[in-house]
Write a protein that binds this DNA or RNA. Structure first.
Length: 988
DNA sequence: ACAGAAGCTTA
DNA sequence: GTAAGCTTCTGTT
């Protein structure tokens, strides 16, 4: 082996297990021999060996070997007898495949390497070292984290199932430490699968942070006393020996006395007949044909190889090689019945899109109006003068559809790959900027030649996007706005087809994504992103896409956006919805884009401390739960839990879920706990702790942006039926507050140094909106007087004076008030209050007697919805309920409740939208530098310099309290409570 | 690897 | 009883 040579080392054993679990089971047709993993293996190896067409890895191997584990017993068992002790036996239908895969390796003429006493990983480590020392490179075909310690400048990894390169940056991204520290990291975290102990309470996040702080494991153990957190320090001091043993266990041996040398691994051209003989015997028809073509072999002339199938565990019976479990048999039958070529799927899928013929014909009629779309007619712009000509053309036209292509759905992470423009239907172009050349080094190719330099292209584009006399049209503009903002470009004068569609059609079937809209309005099926850039394991990224295809896809997006705009924009005015779009949607786009870009500071230390506490609490509860249950089980499995509670322990079951399982919901468990059962209480507590840990303390740090060090959520403007926003990745609209434990998570949301967080929230905004809309005198009066609204309701209903009212009476009234907003039903109220349905029914009756205006409002809203198919907020936003006329009483009732709720929830959503749109200019006018960061439906969070807090609070309150005006003069005052503090918990 | 169910968090 | 999003487990591919 010499410089420039490249060794591929396939982790054969690792691949067998992954292929077995990831791929559908497959059985040889003639006798049912399980062969799924074998086929996966053969496909993968064949792909890797095909040098000239090997675009996946981007490198050509000169040397190739497949490495296997020899037996489960290795030198590590002498170090630590429990090593890999809790491994269970492999599945029955996998056993015969071990031998077949070795057989396959030989059929490929590849060295099949294994050695007694050593794991495959040690052999891989040794050969990787030998290749490096010989001046060559090595690529390990595996995704096992145990091998990541080997990654370096001349050693890479490649995950064939996800089609992903793993180099130094990927290791750092995944584990937070460079490859050379992986050993220390694994020594600390341990590995439950392999029974490597590690240090209890230390997970990957903590381990990475400790290694960052102390450098390496030895230093950490020597200076453990300096660790601030009491529990963590103690655990590390107490378990130093375990950490050292773990390190020995995870350290791969790079000096195994191997028998074969690298020269034995030189890759030979495939021996067609031998390989085909094996593939034929396996009955892999497609692969056989492919190999025959590539090696110019005549399939018919090759005889299928005769194979000796290794026996599965003899104790399981004589019919070795056949699937003997019922599940395996049925999948064998399925495979045989369907045939290999025919995809599964029944004839019933024809009806799945829910399209009725009448709707379809209407859509076709529309489509006929639209001109045909030809995706091969677009231009690909590769020089500056042409781009400048397109910019001039857009100026001339006064409008241009615009779209960006990037590397990520998250605009804060996305790198610009190109952009497209359209100036008239069918006239669209794509400007590639960051496409990579297919081939290159391990980490992907270099920049494709012939593209306009990003700086030049953006310099040409910037004046166009910032020109207020040219209308920019985009689909989901907020995304492109964030991307362009990050390149110093500010887009003004724009329309957003997604938002126009949302205003027109919120709640109708079908989403507001471009693919849906194109089909609905243009009758045109767009190219799919995944067909250009791949998806799942075949994802390669848009920057790897072929330029011709990329042009067709990207320019089509701009073309379709422009055509959609021409269809949709006029409809706004026609339906009287222009002001909803112009006041509540369009101006919010840059506001949200800024909030997303600002992000909020989250204190890692606080979260990691909480995470440790939660782990301890959950661990203790787990022990107690197992004690009480009398056995160990997966507490998180409702199925297993139900079996224990209602089966083995014989507790009375409450309700059932729709799949017929006993429900183990918190409500059921609370009831059992109230009857004095110990276990359900502990389950509820355990669930609380593990929920907080997994959803919040463990997940949030992963969202901290590497550069800004802040958390940037993403707001969806067109996701809800009512006009509310939604927040995702991460969802910052469901951060805990109800319990004191959960609340602690809010203390991790903090203001930057010298700043405070301001939280301002509307008090009872939905009830106030209801009081206005339904015009209820008592409610209006109570809000005008600032009286406790739930107490007032209770007083009216139960004739109890507000003074000295029992808390339970108020609680019931509060539940009823909420119920009204949700379109109350006796069933729901009974559930909420745990009272008989008759009693709930009686409450509702009394409520309507005292507040007849509410019943009138509900009835008229239902009637309006049935008549028109939609309901409206006080600002004219529509929410559609096309199924409110359903003949299914349950379904209809559900739609009625939703229709009653939508104007209330939606009006409140509109009000806070109006406040948000006005907020920035109001703050600027008052010369305040407060920055709006978050919205949580009825609350806004700001970050503001400490010195400006007092001046900021009244401005924020005033904007929010007056947000409905002048469009609507509410009959009820809005009240906003605002507070400032260092963290979100104290500010709220 | 992926989808659906169950469960839990918020307003 | 309204509106959302995320995690875990489980069965299927």
């Amino acid at each position: 082996m010499k410089k420039g040579d490249h060794l591929f080392l396939v982790d054969g054993s690792g691949y067998i297990f992954r292929a077995y679990h990831a791929l559908p089971p497959l059985n040889r047709k003639s006798d049912g021999l399980p062969t799924g993993a074998v086929l996966g293996f053969c496909n993968m190896v064949w792909k890797l060996m095909q040098d000239s067409r090997n675009t996946d890895v981007g490198i050509t191997p000169t040397h190739f070997a497949v490495i296997f584990d020899y037996s489960s017993k290795t030198f590590r068992n002498d170090l630590y007898p429990e090593y890999k002790a809790n491994r269970s036996a492999p599945p029955e239908d996998l056993i015969p495949q071990f031998g077949l895969i070795r057989e396959a390796t030989r059929a490929f003429d590849l060295p099949c390497i294994e050695m007694e006493g050593f794991e495959a990983d040690d052999l891989i480590a040794t050969y990787a070292r030998l290749a490096r020392e010989a001046g060559g490179d090595a690529t390990i075909i595996s995704s096992d984290k145990d091998l990541m310690q080997l990654v370096g400048p001349s050693v890479g990894m490649y995950d064939p199932m996800k089609d992903r390169q793993i180099g130094v940056p990927e290791v750092i991204e995944k584990w937070g430490v460079p490859p050379e520290k992986m050993i220390d990291l694994q020594a600390l975290t341990g590995d439950s699968v392999d029974n490597v102990p590690g240090v209890p309470g230390i997970g990957p996040k903590t381990a990475a942070q400790l290694l960052e702080q102390f450098g390496d494991l030895d230093t950490l153990l020597a200076r453990a006393s300096e660790i601030k957190q009491d529990k963590r320090r103690q655990s590390i001091i107490d378990n130093a020996d375990k950490a050292r043993i773990s390190r020995d266990l995870v350290t791969l041996k790079i000096d195994v006395p191997v028998k074969e040398g690298l020269d034995d691994f030189v890759l030979q051209p495939p021996n067609g007949p031998r390989l085909i003989g094996f593939l034929k015997a396996m009955e892999f028809t497609t692969l056989t044909r492919r190999v025959a073509e590539a090696t110019s072999t005549e399939v018919a002339e090759v005889e299928a190889a005769s194979l000796v199938i290794e026996r599965a565990d003899a104790a399981h019976g004589p019919d070795v090689g056949f699937p003997s479990t019922p599940a395996a048999r049925s999948s064998a039958a399925k495979a045989a019945g369907n045939g290999a070529a025919e995809p599964a799927g029944g004839p019933d899928s024809a009806n799945k899109d829910g399209t009725t013929p009448s709707l379809l014909s209407a859509l076709r009629a529309e489509a006929a109006v639209a001109e045909k779309i030809n995706v091969d007619a677009y231009s690909c712009i590769l020089d500056l003068p042409t781009l400048q000509a397109w910019v001039a053309e857009a100026r001339e036209a006064g409008l241009v559809a615009f779209d960006t292509e990037t590397t990520s759905l998250d605009p804060m992470q996305a790198e610009l790959i190109g952009f497209s423009l359209a100036t008239a239907p069918g006239r669209a172009a794509y400007v590639p900027l960051g496409h990579k050349s297919g081939r290159g080094d391990l980490l992907g190719g270099g920049l494709l030649e012939g593209q306009i330099p990003v700086r030049d292209a953006l310099a040409a584009l910037k004046p166009l996007l910032e020109d207020k006399s040219v209308l920019k049209i985009a689909q989901n503009l907020k995304y492109d706005l964030v991307v362009m903002n990050r390149h110093g470009i500010d887009v003004v004068s724009y329309d957003d087809t997604m938002l126009i569609s949302y205003v027109l059609d919120a709640g109708t079937t079908g989403g507001h994504g471009m693919d849906d809209l194109s089909e609905k309005w243009l009758g045109h099926k767009t190219l799919k992103f995944k067909d250009i850039a791949g998806s799942g394991k075949r994802f390669v990224g848009f920057d790897q896409a072929d330029l011709k295809q990329a042009t067709a896809y990207a320019a089509e997006d701009a073309d379709v956006t422009l055509r959609l705009w021409r269809v949709l924009k006029p409809r706004l005015a026609a339906k009287g919805l222009a002001s909803v779009y112009e006041r509540l949607e369009r101006p919010l786009v840059p506001v949200l884009a800024q909030m997303e870009q600002r992000g909020i500071s989250v204190d890692r230390q606080i979260l990691s401390r909480l995470s440790g506490e939660l782990a301890q609490g959950a661990g203790r509860l787990e022990d107690e739960i197992f004690q009480l249950a009398g056995s160990r089980f997966t507490i998180g499995s409702p199925k297993q839990l139900g079996d224990i509670l209602f089966g083995r322990m014989g507790l009375p079951g409450g309700s059932k879920t729709k799949t017929g399982q006993w429900s183990t919901s918190a409500q059921v468990l609370e009831e059992l706990a109230a009857e004095g059962h110990e276990l359900p209480r502990k389950i509820v507590d355990w669930r609380q702790l593990t929920k907080l840990k997994s959803t919040y303390t463990d997940a949030l740090p992963g969202y901290i942006h590497p550069e800004t060090k802040r958390v940037h959520t993403s707001y969806a403007m067109a996701a809800t039926s009512t006009g509310r926003l939604s927040s995702s990745e991460p969802n910052l609209q469901n951060i805990p507050i109800r319990t004191s434990e959960g609340r602690k998570i809010r203390t991790a949301f903090i203001a930057d140094k010298g700043n405070k967080l301001v939280s301002a929230d509307y008090s009872q905004i939905e009830l106030r909106v209801l009081a206005h809309m339904a015009d209820i005198p008592q409610l209006r009066q109570a809000f005008a007087d600032g009286i406790d609204i739930h107490a007032m309701t209770a007083s009216e209903m139960f004739s109890v004076p507000v003074e000295g009212m029992p808390s339970d009476v108020r609680r019931r009234a509060k539940a009823i008030n909420f119920g009204i907003i949700y379109g109350i039903s006796a069933f729901g109220l009974a559930n909420q209050l745990s009272i008989p349905r008759e009693e709930a029914s009686d409450y509702i009756k009394r409520y309507f007697e005292r507040f007849p205006g509410i019943r009138d409002y509900m009835d008229s809203t239902k009637a309006f919805a049935r008549e028109n198919g939609y309901v409206e907020t006080i600002f004219g936003r529509r929410a559609h309920y096309p199924e409110i006329r359903s003949s299914n009483p349950q379904h209809r009732a559900f739609n009625e409740r939703a229709a009653i709720n939508a104007p209330i929830q939606g009006s409140a959503a509109d009000i806070i939208r109006r406040a948000m749109v006005r907020m920035d200019s109001a703050l600027a006018e008052a010369k305040l530098s407060a920055r709006m960061l978050l919205q949580v439906h009825d609350e806004l969070i700001f970050e503001t310099p400490e010195g400006e807090v007092e001046a900021t609070l009244p401005v924020v309150r005033s904007v929010m309290e007056n947000a409905a005006m002048p469009a609507v003069n509410l009959a009820v005052p809005l009240q906003v409570d605002a507070r400032a503090a260092h963290n979100w918990d104290e500010a709220h």
